[in-house]
């Protein structure tokens, strides 16, 4: 195995493999990608903590309208991402991660104000990030859209989606897993 000359010992790789949904090769590949973000810092400490500004340079994140939320959710310290955080992120976004895990993180990413509910303000933010700045919906359209969403998904009529409701909806969405994914 080519793992012997890598940055990690066999034991570490085993550990990572147990803790994530990735295979050893994939883990090494993730590390390679992590190193491209800041080869200096990662070269001296393989689990270096990179600031968000550096992590943002990952091609998939760079263009992602939810990048700040994604980084915030996966960061363990709140001000940067270590390799383990990064690996965690890639593991959740990988093909093998079960839907339940993806749903959990998706909920956190879309919960902008962090109150553990997707309120209509969260939905508004979500929609405006989805359509982008150039094609903003007007107030009325936005409201109609949010009303429709809540009508369909809000089962207990409290005008916001709880995690259970979110999960219920997503469990029926066939495209969720294929879109909530970053290929390695």
């Amino acid at each position: 195995m080519g793992a012997s000359q890598s940055a990690f010992s066999e034991q570490e790789l085993d550990d990572y493999q147990t803790l994530t949904y990735l295979t050893k090769k994939e883990i090494l590949h993730v590390h390679k990608r992590f190193a491209t973000l800041d080869s200096g810092a990662v070269g001296s400490d393989k689990n270096a903590k990179l600031p968000f500004t550096k992590v943002k340079e990952l091609p998939e994140l760079k263009v992602n309208p939810f990048k700040d939320q994604i980084m915030k959710v996966f960061s363990s310290s709140g001000d940067g991402m270590t390799f383990e955080d990064f690996l965690d992120m890639m593991s959740v976004f990988s093909d093998d991660a079960p839907k339940a895990v993806k749903v959990e993180y998706a909920f956190r990413i879309y919960d902008f104000d962090g109150d553990d509910m997707l309120s209509s303000a969260d939905l508004k933010e979500l929609i405006s990030r989805l359509t982008g700045e150039d094609n903003a919906l007007n107030e009325e359209q936005m409201q109609q859209l949010i009303d429709n969403i809540l009508e369909e998904a809000d089962l207990d009529d409290d005008d916001s989606l709880s995690f259970a409701e979110f999960e219920h909806v997503i469990s029926k969405a066939p495209d969720f897993v294929s879109s909530f994914r970053i290929r390695l």
Binding site: P59, E60, K62, V63, N64, P65, F66, F93, A106, Y110, L123, L126, I127, L130, L145, N148, I149, E152, A153, F166, V169, I170, K172, A173, D175, F176, S179, F180, R181, I182, R183
Partner: peptide, 14 residues
């Protein structure tokens, strides 16, 4: 519409 909103972003886009 819920699907459209919650699942429409491709996180793999680069």
């Amino acid at each position: 519409i819920v699907f459209k909103v919650l699942c429409s972003w491709d996180h793999g886009l680069t």
